[in-house]
Amino acid sequence: MSGESDLKTLLAGMRPELNVGCYVFATVDDGIVPPGVSPVVTVAEQEGLTLVLSQQEADAAGVAYEYTAGWITLRVHSALEAVGLTAAVARELADSGLSCNVVAGFHHDHLFVPYEQAAQAVTVLEDLARRSV
């Protein structure tokens, strides 16, 4: 099933959903995911393997991290070739003083925002969706 590519439709139907828990960004130099850790995102970089995982798992495994985030999933099925969704969402959050790290999955876009401001970010995105109808 292919995803949606029309920006207006994407924005109006994004249905942001805050996932339960606190998530952290960490890196492992050896490229090996520690035992007992199930990252929700991994990114291979020259400097090491970036892991996005629950803070609870990171703490239990002794994985160091610096950034704690709330994880928001945009429930609209966005096409990977869609143009403008990431820019529109990031711009709206930036205009509200919120940082955003975006990861595109096959079906959905995932936003990692400062943990303490995650509920505010959802409200900002819901408002953007309402205005896009």
Rank of each mutant, 00 (worst) to 15 (best):
M1A: 14
G3C: 02
S5L: 12
D6I: 13
D6L: 11
T9L: 14
L11H: 03
A12H: 09
R15V: 03
R15S: 14
P16M: 09
V20R: 14
V24H: 10
A26G: 11
V28K: 04
D29M: 11
D30P: 01
G31L: 02
V33M: 03
P34L: 10
V37I: 15
S38W: 05
P39N: 09
V43H: 08
A44T: 13
Q46W: 10
Q46N: 13
G48E: 05
L49R: 06
V52S: 00
E57K: 01
A58V: 08
A60F: 04
A61P: 01
A61G: 02
V63A: 04
A64H: 07
L74H: 04
R75H: 13
R75Q: 15
H77M: 12
S78P: 06
A79Y: 02
A79T: 00
A79G: 12
L80I: 10
A82N: 00
L85I: 14
A88M: 13
A88V: 14
D95Q: 14
S96L: 00
S96D: 15
S96V: 02
G97A: 01
L98W: 05
S99D: 00
C100L: 06
V102R: 01
H107W: 07
D109I: 03
H110M: 07
P114V: 03
Y115C: 00
E116V: 09
E116T: 06
A119V: 15
A119C: 09
T123I: 15
V124M: 06
E126I: 14
S132E: 12
